[in-house]
Amino acid sequence: MSSRHNIFSRWNGLWVIRGHLSSRTYLMFALVGMLLPLAAWWGVSVSGWMDKVFMPGPVDVLSRTYVWFKEDDLMHDVWISTYRVIAGFSLSAVLAIPLGLMIGTYRPVQAMLEPLTDFIRYMPAVAFIPLVMLWVGIDESSKIAIIFIGTFFQMVLMVAEDVRRVPITQIEAAQTMGASRREIISLVIVPSAKPALLDTLRVTMGWAWTYLVVAELVAANSGLGYSILRAQRFMQTDKIFAGIILIGLIGLAIDQLFRWLHRKNFPWMYKK
């Protein structure tokens, strides 16, 4: 009786609003969240409820991935796609960070550039593809350009917002200590905004992968997105699955890398 009561109260304790979970319980719930869809997928595929051509099972996808790796140069597709994402994303970051910093720091720059950026941001990046192909051609730079267009304008605005979130008292304290404008930017605004900036990069990295697939679906003859498109032509649904899951896994790995960098670079945020 008392042990039943005990289990009940422990179960109830899990549902405290904004409550805490031990890391073991957290891991358990995470595993359930991952394995449940996988099991459902596997169940549907073996039940014969859907045609295998449309709904390959996990095993089919795994074996197709192996064949792709062995015979179709999977690693090249992974590499070329990753290269495009990183190139487009880096180009965007290199320009967006200083620009966003200026917009978030100086009002005239903000007035001049922010409405314009807001306007361009609402133009769908995908609609630029025909134009990009006419201007840049269909080689590597066109995919990089599409990823750039897709991420840059969002990134500028997010960086500007990160910079504006630096508490004004941190800046005023530096002013009263005799810091010059340049010192305030390099010693206060940048270090203060850095953690938020890294998060902005992490989020926009996800979008870069979305635009990669768009770019490769339209104008490419290699890469994960391109492989997905070609697999559709040959009715290789297992390869489509494999491509999508691979992109998800790479994205997850990069996301974790960013989170690791965050903990590594900003230890003060994690000490309590």
Partner: peptide
């Protein structure tokens, strides 16, 4: 303008957390 001869202490959020 501000000067080093006049230091200021604010109510909060003025320390550099990093």
């Amino acid at each position: 303008g501000p000067g080093v001869d006049r230091a200021m202490v604010f109510q909060h959020y003025s320390l550099y957390p990093w």
